[in-house]
Design a protein around this nucleic acid. Structure first.
Lengths: 191, 191
DNA sequence: CGATTCTTTGAAAACAGTCAATCTGTGTGG
DNA sequence: CCACACAGATTGACTGTTTTCAAAGAATCG
């Protein structure tokens, strides 16, 4: 299962075999069943997590008990609650599996050591962070400027894979509209 | 005018006098009149910009010509279009001054050199980026989960200074509601 | 099959957006 | 100093969208 992670690291960050060894030494394999938690509100997030297989979501619970999805992640994406991870404070979020999943965990300290030891990896991480930030900004723009239909439309164009695999009501939660509205929007859309 | 920047760097990043010299050597002072652009759509953003005095906004223009504000910034904040800055591609955004402002610009290459030369500065930058990301995530949560009234309420609690200085219709644009709605929300709020 | 999850639909109510008009305060130029 | 223009804020009436609630119809899974 480390293989797909290794392939990813070679392709995206150009790691050598020796460097892959270093990574492998500190990665922990974890399997999650559908609906199982990777992280629960109140936990401290000690790991960054690479998804070898499956699909996860990160969400928060509102005062009224409603779920608000901040992020989805599938194969070859990273998932972690960065706020808790970086601050080492209890998380306000939950992460759980939407499908049976195979994950590779690396503890924060070990990962930081890897960044020191493998400059290529550090640079790759920075590129990822930059991209994540851009994505966030564009999502904010979408939130404040688009209609429900445009949000839906852009979502399925940007993330067709996620659209295919995730229940509609969760996409509604991610977009910030009710499931009924999204269901109706989609009717219109299928003209 | 470099003084307030120096004070900031000492307080926040713990720079020494020698290090401040290095910074001063590559900072360029710029004054902006109210309504003047710092960056226009299509420009490439070559600078990161520290605000010594005044207030700026970063916004995008929608297809229908409407303005959508992504960020405000006041004294001791940084402002730049990070997407264009990092990618060296033409910006999709505009930055302009909401008040007469005094800015300190550092060119990207010079700033990167400073990060290399002054590890403390690099670490400080990373802390800032982390915080910016957290703020973005929380704004997304606000966007998808809160009512107009809650958004308004939380905005004035989180940014009383900006609330005091920026016209209401721009806060409406930032929050993603119409100015009329925000005006009415505020009536309710003043009970 | 039976249970659960997910999606759709309808009708009513709440909400937000638009348009148009008015009101306010500020600042500029004659 | 006044008149005027301009940016900003507010209000009312109307329209349109979204949410909510309730119910029922698919789909999935053990």
């Amino acid at each position: 299962m480390f293989k797909s992670f290794a392939a990813y690291l070679v392709e995206k960050a150009g790691l050598t075999n020796e460097e892959l060894k270093l990574v492998e030494d500190v990665t922990v394999v974890k399997k999650l069943r559908k609906r199982q938690y990777l992280l629960q509100e109140g936990d401290i997030c000690h790991y960054n997590c690479f998804i070898a297989k499956g699909c996860l979501r990160l969400y928060r619970i509102g005062k009224d008990g409603s779920e608000h999805i901040l992020r989805f992640a599938v194969e070859n994406w990273w998932m972690s609650d960065y706020e808790s991870y970086n601050s080492s404070r209890p998380s306000k979020s939950n992460i759980d599996a939407l499908e049976n999943s195979e994950l590779l965990l690396i503890e924060k300290q070990n990962l930081n050591a890897l960044f020191k030891a493998i400059p290529k990896l550090q640079i790759f991480k920075e590129r990822l962070e930059t991209k994540n930030f851009d994505v966030s900004q564009n999502r904010i723009l979408s939130n404040i400027s688009e209609t429900a239909e445009e949000k839906y439309d852009n979502f399925i164009k940007a993330y067709p894979e996620i659209y295919r695999r995730v229940p509609l009501h969760m996409i509604a939660s991610y977009l910030g509209v009710s499931r009924e509205t999204l269901s109706r929007v989609r009717q219109q859309y299928a003209r």
